[in-house]
Design a protein around this nucleic acid. Sequence first.
DNA 1: AGAATTACCTGAGCGC
DNA 2: TGCGCTCAGGTAATTC
Length: 267
Amino acid sequence: MPELPEVEVTRRRLERVLVGKRFTQVVLRVTKLRLPVPAELAEIVPGLTLQAITRRGKYLLFDCGSGWLLVHLGMTGFLRLLRGASPPGKHDHLDFFFVDGSLLRFHDPRKFGIVTWFTGDPKQQRLLAEIGPEPLTGAFNGVYLFNSARERKVAVKQFIMNSSVVAGVGNIYANEALFRAGIRPDRAAGTLTAQECALLATVIRDVLEESIGSGSTCRVAEGTVDYHPLNLKVYGRSGDTCSVCGERLEEIRLGNRSSVFCRSCQK
DNA sequence: AGAATTACCTGAGCGC
DNA sequence: TGCGCTCAGGTAATTC
């Protein structure tokens, strides 16, 4: 389940290896993803040189000079970096070959991912235009969060998972950040004080940065799943004892997402 | 405008 | 062994 830290780790790895190289071939095997993969990728992309790889929330943007390859890994997608011809396995939907023999392969069993192409300003791109500030930048802070939360009745967990509020905070880190901030996930967003918003913005940044620092999940290298995110305190630990106070962690559902918290530590 | 709901998809895990 | 069911969950699209 690629969360923002995994996407960023993937971005850094691919940037080191692929930027400056020219695409030679694109092979489309399965194009029915969350959005249809444009068939014209196979004609447009070969011959272009990869200029840069950037990230917006959980989207990866491959700057190809005359346009952009936009990739989202959805729930189960990952990008594998291989060398030379390699027989595709199940769910290996797309291959991007480079001039030096590098192969970037898109794999996604659930097909929740997105691979598309656009030209022009990324800020104008339909899928990117409404995304809120990046959580690792100064634009995302307690003042912004507090102002955004005014009058909002939605649960704070759903609020911080709303991509128009802040980019790239998924279920795992929403749960972890709220535990670290001592805030119950079902509190109405508008009831948070300015101090709580300041703390929440800080811990969201902290949990994401710590996970990036620990390597997150790096499925890029050899295709092995090497999943060692931040030491999770609440996510997936319903019924366990709280690591701080020893009470049983409880699970509730918010927006049909599992939400785990400690009743005594989170208010 | 904001909130709630639906749709997309496959594999894992479960009870029987 | 296998059937049918539920769950996992990002986010765009749709509805209320």
